[in-house]
Design a protein around this nucleic acid. Structure first.
Lengths: 338, 338
DNA sequence: CTGTTAGCGCTTTCAA
DNA sequence: TTGAAAGCGCTAACAG
């Protein structure tokens, strides 16, 4: 059996209360007692049982992070950002996976509630937030990241999807690009919808109506990007430039282009949301819209901790805050065709 | 305040013991009482407090996963495999990050112990396992993945690094490849050491002594792969084929090659350990050695749960088992130069 | 400065 | 089949 506070108390010949005070750095403890206790703590290699502590104190110093995919660089980089910020404040992170399913999302949240996490950060699996509403009942501090959930009002940290896309496309339009294709994700997810809107907005400003055959929507994964780029490239006429709505589809699309490089006289120019590890790899000229991924996570953690502290002190919770972090254009283009 | 077992008991007009039995599916409970209690549970939306439960039962149904990097496709895919297997058995996963540091690794493990996890799965940060030995003292069920730790004997699930590499290089040698370069990782980590050994073994069988200037070691990240490939390619003579010790360096190396494609008359052939999402993307001919990444995770989870169960029943723990899962060769080569 | 004591929410003998 | 009561390891009044 593990060593408990009692064992320490007995050996140090003090009460368990004293031991508790020592390990919690209560100032009103004499130096000698403190030393004696600490010595025993060391000797017995005593570690607090944070389960017991949590049962008393009703806080676990643990935050849940719920992502729709766990083997996904984007969400895990967000998680990394969350963890960085939490660790500074002595909090820990439990990462869970909703598998992009609202049902599993609820399941995982119930689990996290069972485990008495102090708050949760969620990249919601679905554009509708109906299934999340029970969180407000429960009063669990919550921050959304990357995506908003309709009908579920809460703090959120995301990026300027529409504006970022608008600026990229606007830039290309000014440089003379005119024949655009579009590779989109599920528009029931806010980021993909907003990126689509930004894209269309820029085109309409230049009085350009894209060929409907050049507008494609799929899921947001590599294979989907490959398939849609294939459709676009094989369509006649093919678009001269293609906007791709996220990193994974960018990778898939690039894969297609590289494999069929020799078949094209002029390369298709790519603009893509996200700029991550491999955005530069493929050597297809591109303009990318970089998100501050780590900061999304760390900022979300800050907002959450704020809410947790406020709740602890029985203060009024603030109104839901939606923060849009700025994106940044990145040119991957040695021939400066952008 | 959250609703507790007491609230349910009061409303259902039974003792807390009865409620406890109902929610734990104790058979010796009359159907009527069960129904009555369940109805109240629903009405109050009662959820067990697993903190309190764990304090009593001394188990948390939670497993810790400790990875040296959290924003890393490989480790997170392993984590995915772990989670798949755990979920089936009603266990949960806490993912922690050691930042490839032995000190942080110990910190995180102490945290997990504080949280009373039932066991841990570790991809150890360092080839030396000295800092892990305290786990045996504590008696915490442990399984290593991907890497072994010298001086720390425990269950482990990894792949046939040496054999897999050997087979790939052997295959290429038979196809006439002779001038090999090598891009390696930190050989204090067992996978990188073993891959190096497999590489050298294959060459020596063919009586080939690689040019020392063609053997490079770095860290295992994208930038490192880029830098080493640059060195190899700029060296005169450059190797005709290069073995790369993992996915991320493969990506970096490929990035270099694609960027400088036009400068070479004949492309450098790549053989690389790992075959993941983007291995096929770059259009540089390659032969990859695929690991069954998800299975590494799920198998590790199985071994761990076995140990946890045994310990619970006070059975003798089994001898440490080291399982090597087989790798598989994958050809990414439209011109069949491999 | 330190000890006594009650109790966090739950499970589990033991007794009925 | 059910209830009473003890106790998991810790913290926090309260008292001294």
């Amino acid at each position: 059996m593990a060593v408990t506070i009692k064992d320490v108390a007995k050996l140090a010949d003090v009460s368990t209360a004293t031991v508790s005070r020592v390990i919690n750095n209560d100032p009103r403890i004499s130096a000698v007692t403190r030393d004696r206790v600490l010595k025993i703590v060391d000797k017995l290699n005593y570690k607090v049982n944070s389960i017991a502590r949590s049962l008393k104190s009703n806080r676990t110093f643990t935050v849940g992070f719920l992502a729709p995919e766990i083997a996904n660089d984007f969400f895990m980089t967000v998680a990394q950002g969350v963890e960085n910020a939490l660790r500074e404040r002595g909090y820990n992170l439990i990462i869970c996976n909703s598998n992009e399913s609202a049902d599993e999302e609820v399941e995982r949240l119930e689990l996290l509630i069972e485990k008495c996490v102090d708050g949760v950060i969620i990249a919601p699996s679905s554009g509708s937030g109906a299934h999340l509403r029970f969180l407000q009942q429960v009063g669990l501090p919550t921050v959304l990241v990357d995506r908003l959930a309709a009908g579920f009002s809460s703090d959120a940290v995301l990026v300027d999807n529409a504006t970022g896309t608008y600026k990229a496309i606007h830039h290309l339009l000014k440089r003379g690009h005119t024949h655009f294709g579009f590779i989109g994700g599920d528009v029931s997810l806010t980021p993909f919808r907003e990126r689509y809107q930004g894209f269309m907005h820029a085109l309409s400003e230049f009085g350009i109506q894209p060929d409907p055959a050049h507008i494609k929507f799929g899921d947001y994964h590599v294979d989907s990007g490959y398939a849609m780029m294939k459709q676009l490239a094989e369509h006649s006429p093919a678009p001269a430039s293609v906007f791709i709505s996220n990193y994974f589809m960018h990778i898939g699309a690039t894969q297609y282009l590289v494999e069929h490089r020799s078949q094209r006289s002029r390369p298709i120019f790519i603009a893509s949301f996200d700029d991550m590890a491999l955005s530069a790899v493929a050597g297809v000229p591109s303009l990318t819209i970089a998100q501050p991924v780590l900061q999304i996570g760390s900022r979300a953690a800050q907002l959450l901790l704020e809410r947790i502290e406020l709740r602890l002190n029985h203060n009024e919770p603030p109104q839901p805050r939606i923060e849009r972090l700025p994106t940044r254009l990145v040119f991957h283009d040695r021939n400066n065709t952008a």
